[in-house]
């Protein structure tokens, strides 16, 4: 009886934990009318349900602008409720900064609100969205239940845009992916970098072009020198009041590129390159070891090709 009872209690506890699927989203105020939901600096797991990403929203006079929709339908729904708890205005626009799954798989929850992204992001979500969603099902499990890909219908262009009475500066950049949108809210001085900026968490590189990424970081850092600049909301990691996320991301990418080139120059193969030690400065970043190995897999084939000479 005792055994049966404890078994039942274990079952009950498990069911309760699994049944509520609560991401615990709490809006963090970044500036006047600008809020962010800061995810964990972890990899995707069944425990975090994919809440490893930052999303946010801007309260404009005529309504609310949402920046990224999170990793699942449930996240999007909970985000929508958490936004309503801060401000009751209607949602006027949802923007996806790039085509990685933790940034757009909550789109379903914003039915009826225009969804917008750069043309390259729209293309990427259309082509790879389903494969990404399947992969997140595999990595996080039932948190993803009912999640389906919704491709944004509105293409964004670089430049100034007046949305619901708020002046946004859209920067069409690239390097983390083929199309990375950064959004600078000129009213508050808050810069949403998307995944061009990682902070206190090693950057991910599955679609990276390091050279273009470094150039994008320069463009973003120029904004932090403008008089009105107040804060950065990076794609992953805590909010910063200075350019630290950009500098940290740049330092990691510079080191990564140099380490891969040096390995290729020395004649090492991919396994030997993966086995190399990470300098202490970078080893302290969460997920540095796993992201370094993943990056070797993504980037080393291109780097080694540069040092092999045509044979005739």
């Amino acid at each position: 009886m005792k055994r049966w009872l404890s078994g039942f209690l274990v079952l009950l506890a498990g069911a309760a934990g699994a049944a509520d699927f609560d991401y615990g989203l709490k809006a963090q105020r970044v500036a006047d009318g600008v809020h962010a939901f800061i995810g964990k600096t972890e990899d995707f797991t069944p425990a975090n349900g994919g809440n490893i990403v930052n999303t946010g929203f801007i309260v404009a006079p005529g309504g609310i602008i949402v920046i990224d929709s999170g990793p699942s339908r449930r996240y999007g729904e909970q985000m929508r409720r958490a936004i309503a708890a801060v401000d009751q205005r209607p949602l006027v626009l949802v923007i996806n900064t790039h085509h990685h799954p933790d940034h757009f798989l909550g789109n379903q929850a914003f039915a009826g609100v225009p969804l917008a992204a750069l043309p390259g992001t729209i293309k990427g979500i259309g082509e790879e969205g389903n494969a990404f969603a399947e992969n997140l099902f595999r990595l996080t499990g039932d948190w993803m239940q009912g999640t389906e890909v919704v491709v944004p219908g509105q293409a964004l262009r670089a430049g100034h845009q007046e949305t619901a009475g708020r002046r946004l500066r859209l920067l069409a950049l690239a390097g983390h992916t083929e199309a990375d949108l950064a959004i600078y809210d000129e009213t508050s001085g808050v810069l949403f970098t998307g995944d061009l900026g990682f902070f206190e968490r090693a950057p991910t590189t599955p679609h990276a072009d390091v050279g273009r990424w470094l150039a994008a970081l320069d463009a973003l850092e120029a904004i932090t020198r403008e008089p009105g600049f107040r804060a950065i909301v990076p794609g992953h990691g805590p909010v910063a009041r200075d350019a630290a996320p950009l500098r940290q991301t740049r330092a990691w990418l510079n080191w990564l590129q140099m380490a891969l080139r040096r390995s290729a120059e020395e004649g090492l193969d991919m396994n030997e390159t993966m086995a190399r030690a990470i300098p202490a400065e970078f080893a302290v970043l969460p997920l540095s070891a796993s992201e370094y190995r993943r990056s070797v897999g993504h980037l080393f084939p291109g780097v080694e090709q540069e040092i092999l000479e045509p044979a005739r």
Binding site: D269, E304, Q305, L308, A311
Partner: peptide
């Protein structure tokens, strides 16, 4: 079937050939 490659003669990988 285009081949690119390199041989190493110095350093820790002094007897190495890599080709693609």
């Amino acid at each position: 079937n285009q081949v690119s490659g390199r041989q190493w003669n110095r350093g820790a990988q002094a007897d190495r050939i890599r080709l693609r």
